[in-house]
Write a protein that binds this DNA or RNA. Structure first.
Lengths: 235, 235
DNA sequence: AATAACTTGCACACTCATGTGCAAGTTATT
DNA sequence: AATAACTTGCACATGAGTGTGCAAGTTATT
């Protein structure tokens, strides 16, 4: 019950403000959790704690329950994925889909853990719900592309959107397992997204060459882990 | 310790032969395990047992350990996947890849569980080793296709082979989650395999139309679960 | 019908992970 | 330097899953 919440607004006039290093530890725990759960979806608190440089007991100073920690990861993951994909807007649906792949890659770890949590784990339904906007965003892109005659029409848009998501995720899995380079991951996820969308590999290459926004550096800055004002807590 | 192995060759001249229903139960357990593990990769023996219509205690009459049960699933999975993919041979690598997808679909449940076991679970390394022939088979097809100018050359063959596997598996995941029809699953997995291989969706359609061996009925007969002479035990 | 082969239920030991209470440290802040 | 904020280690309770022994059933086989 020793809730060491980061937020500054305490209830009944405390004698002193919370310590700053505690907030850092909280984040260290979240980061360690993401990292460890990427390794093993069933990682124990013991594992996570020591990866964060703390004792298991200390975790309970920040999260009253494992589920509460996982819930925060959910929120953080959803926030990051949403933040990464929401701003995508492009007149060419094919480019938009490629961007979806690229942005997912820029947040690999959070994306993978979040995807796992959306399938397994307790909160799966809540997570899936939280990811709804993302999914309908991708669906919207697909529908736009189909309407414009840029994408395949042999697969129902709803299904196609799911398949593209799935294909992208499977690239992320592969990339993480093989510890692929940042540049190569970027390239592969884009290629696979476009392929699944119906383009031939040559068409994909042409499109990429013609679209500077798909270059590696063109990302709107990947969140460099910890110290991220917008993703820390509940919100 | 009560090893009720199906094999007929008993050690020291038993008073009577093993009962036939026991063998059926053994298979019921394996089938239930596949089915339940498809639902939840961490399903307990209790869950599996009751799905098989037996008590947890009875499982230990057939398998001395959970790991032993899982090991049998490994063997069975590897055997089925191998059996499904090994006979694939086609002058056109694109058709061959489509067939890989189709055959995987015909063994969805075993394929998915086996794939999971190849990543998580204890025996993962052994499973991965067992799947080696399958993987190099796919790789051979890819290399053949690249040499013949039928497949994309923008991705290294080794990587491409992995990506195609991954893409196919992600379709199976989707299909199982959404409980898609047999025909639709067949169609989707082929389309995705070809797309990942570099074909445009129109090229894929053409190829499929021109290849009768890719039709739904053309499968060399899917093993209909239980009572399968070649996949029952160790071997 | 006799009997070995199986199944079942229950009790129990063991392990692993989670969650708590508390006393004794450390360390940031005032 | 004082002290509240945190961390730590340990002991302990709880719960879930695995694996075993055994006595009492069923059921296939001879």
């Amino acid at each position: 019950m020793t809730d060491t919440s980061t937020s500054a607004h305490r209830a009944s006039r405390p004698a002193r403000a919370p310590r700053r290093d505690a907030a850092e530890n909280r984040i260290a725990i979240l980061d360690a959790a993401i990292s460890e759960l990427n390794h093993d979806p069933d990682a124990s608190l013991e594992t996570i704690a020591s990866a964060a440089g703390l004792s298991r007991r200390s975790i309970y100073g920040h999260f009253s329950t494992r589920d509460e920690l996982v819930a925060e990861l959910n929120d953080r993951g959803i926030a990051r994925v949403t933040a990464a994909l929401a701003p995508i807007r492009h007149s060419d649906a094919r480019v938009a889909l490629a961007l979806v792949g690229a942005r997912l890659w820029s947040e690999v770890e959070d994306v993978r853990v979040t995807a796992q949590l959306a399938i397994r784990g307790p909160r799966r339904e809540i997570v899936a719900e939280g990811l709804e906007p993302v999914r309908s965003g991708v669906l919207a892109i697909v529908e736009q592309g189909v309407a414009a005659g840029q994408l395949r029409t042999d697969i129902e848009p709803r299904t196609l959107a799911r398949l593209i998501e799935g294909a992208a995720l499977s690239v992320l899995d592969e990339a993480v397992r093989d510890d692929i380079s940042h540049a190569e991951g970027h390239r592969l996820v884009i290629l696979v997204a476009l392929s699944t969308a119906g383009l031939s590999w040559r068409e994909a290459a042409e499109l990429i060459d013609a679209s500077p926004e798909l270059a590696l550096g063109a990302q709107p800055e990947a969140s460099t882990r910890h110290s991220d004002s917008s993703t820390g807590a509940k919100a």
